[in-house]
Simulated scan of single mutants.
Amino acid sequence: MTTSSIPMLDRDSKTPLWQQLRDKLRQQIVAGQLGVNAQLPTEAELGAAHGVSRIVVRECLADLVRSGLVYKIQGKGAFISAPKREDDFASTLLAHSDEMRLKGRAVRTQVLHQTLRLPDAREATALSLQAGTQVTALRRLRSVDGTISVLVDTVVPADLAPELHRIRLEDKSLYEVLSRQYGLQVARAERWIDAVLPAAEERELLQIDSTEPLLRIESIAYAANGRTLEHYIALHRCQSTRLHVRTQG
């Protein structure tokens, strides 16, 4: 990218110069005129091209970084970020892996733990289980297009899916297994979304070098008869992803 490719700023405008420069750069980034990982001109080059101070340029770039359009590498400069992938599963009955595959994404699911056990208090409440009812508990790590994206802990009532803990689920859709082998269909689900900071084990599994906020999604899925089928808590890296929620009036 060259500085001459950036339209000149309007010095008579009431809009601050840093916002004008930001908007020009943002327009080109969103339109795809700048390639992913392309390096932007230096602060000095941008400042000289538009007759503004480096403080103005820094304010512009800082806002682009905050919005996720640009990333910085210390000592090397500013670069164009990859566009964020939109995940719709939070507002549908699709599993995350199913939705990604429908969008043509390469999905890999690694099963870290798969066992039959008693639920903890939170799981028992979520699944409305009677005392002594066991669950199949899964911990899975999911990659999308080669990037580790999601860590998910799932429990399913063992009486609904006997021997589920023995079925190989590597790179398989849990919902598809539940449907084909047990005749279980998800009719509705409730989901809660918040932001959390990962614990040390979670950072290691998700290959996060430093602390970054994650999106946590808790979900309870129900069959048509009202029986609770599944409870999960998923931690999503959100640097390259944003959740899309569709509503109807």
Rank of each mutant, 00 (worst) to 15 (best):
L141M: 10
W18V: 03
V52N: 05
R168Y: 06
Y175W: 04
P83V: 09
H231V: 08
E86C: 03
T125G: 05
V52S: 03
D10P: 05
S173K: 02
S179F: 01
L197Q: 15
G75N: 14
T154S: 14
V186A: 00
V30G: 01
A95E: 07
L141I: 08
G47S: 10
L184T: 03
L40H: 12
I167Q: 15
I220S: 04
G132W: 02
L141T: 09
L127E: 11
G32A: 10
V56F: 10
S4V: 07
L93K: 00
R108H: 10
D209W: 09
R22D: 02
T241P: 05
V107A: 01
A106R: 08
A126L: 13
L174V: 11
M100F: 00
I73M: 01
R166P: 02
R203E: 13
L25C: 14
R26K: 07
P198E: 02
L206A: 09
L160F: 04
G132L: 05
R26P: 03
A106G: 02
A49N: 03
R105V: 08
L116P: 03
H113V: 10
P83R: 13
P83T: 14
Q39F: 02
R140Y: 10
D88R: 15
S97H: 07
V65E: 13
G35W: 04
A78Q: 01
A124I: 04
G32S: 10
V156F: 00
I55T: 09
R139Q: 08
L69F: 10
T42R: 09
E59I: 02
L129Q: 00
L160N: 01
A158K: 06
S179T: 01
E163Q: 14
I167V: 15
P7W: 09
G75T: 13
Q207M: 14
L169A: 11
E45I: 05
V196Y: 03
G35H: 06
H96C: 06
L46D: 13
V177L: 04
S4E: 11
T247P: 07
Q185S: 15
I167K: 14
M1C: 10
R66C: 03
L112V: 15
C60S: 06
L229C: 10
S97K: 02
I148C: 07
G68R: 13
K172C: 08
L160C: 03
P41D: 12
V245M: 02
L178C: 05
A44C: 08
E163T: 11
Q74M: 04
N225H: 04
E59T: 03
Q207T: 13
Y232A: 12
E201T: 05
G226W: 14
V177S: 03
R101G: 01
L46P: 12
S210C: 12
A44K: 10
E123D: 01
Q19T: 11
A44W: 07
T241L: 13
A82E: 12
V156P: 01
P162V: 11
L25F: 13
A223P: 00
S97V: 08
D12T: 14
R105Q: 15
P198A: 05
V111G: 04
L112C: 14
R122W: 11
W192E: 09
T147G: 07
K24S: 11
R108I: 06
G47F: 09
Q239G: 03
D171M: 14
A200K: 01
S179P: 01
A161N: 15
M100A: 05
Y222R: 05
A62F: 06
C238N: 10
S53L: 11
R26F: 04
G77L: 07
E218G: 06
E202M: 08
S91R: 15
S5E: 09
